[in-house]
């Protein structure tokens, strides 16, 4: 039996079941986060752009300027330079620049670092009206300025 009345009945039934599910949704908690007013806390392993880890004793960077990160980077967006100062065992970093416009946030640099001197920033509101701000993220200067 496939008369028009059956069709109307079937259509009506699926309309009612659809409306019932939609109505149930009214009594469920809200999932939307009102973004500019509230924001979500980033998880522990969130991969933002890289920043230096501060040595708790000296307050300086742990980086030994070995350039492993620059070699591991698939996009060649890291430039590192360092000097060996008098009386110090390891090299210390003088320049560490990240071209964030090329970075794909893969985390190879953090993984490869032998001194564990790099970590991910939790900053994610990365937007700027000028390109220059992200072409060169100067990690050394950021550490000195104590930016997160």
């Amino acid at each position: 039996m496939n008369g028009p009345l059956i069709n109307v009945w079937r259509g009506f039934r699926s309309l009612v079941s659809g409306m019932r599910i939609t109505l149930q949704q009214f009594f469920k908690p809200n999932v939307t986060v009102q973004y500019p007013h509230e924001s979500i806390k980033m998880p522990e392993r969130f991969r933002g752009h890289i920043i230096f880890v501060r040595d708790p004793d000296s307050g300086k960077s742990l980086c030994i300027a070995c350039k492993s990160c620059a070699k591991a980077c698939p996009s060649e967006c890291i430039v590192v330079d360092g000097v060996k100062r008098e009386g110090e065992k390891k090299k210390s970093v003088t320049e560490f620049k990240l071209d964030f416009t090329k970075c794909s946030l893969c985390g190879s640099c953090v993984e490869v670092c032998p001194a564990d001197a790099l970590r991910f920033s939790k900053e994610y509101n990365l937007a700027s009206p000028t390109k220059g701000e992200y072409v060169e993220i100067d990690l050394v200067r950021r550490l000195e300025a104590d930016k997160p």
Binding site: R45, S104, L105, C106
Partner: peptide, 20 residues
Amino acid sequence: EGLTGSRLTYCYYRFGGVCN
């Protein structure tokens, strides 16, 4: 995201296992 740190482009597996 909590596991890999990324929501879409995970890059989570490594040669010989996984990274976390």
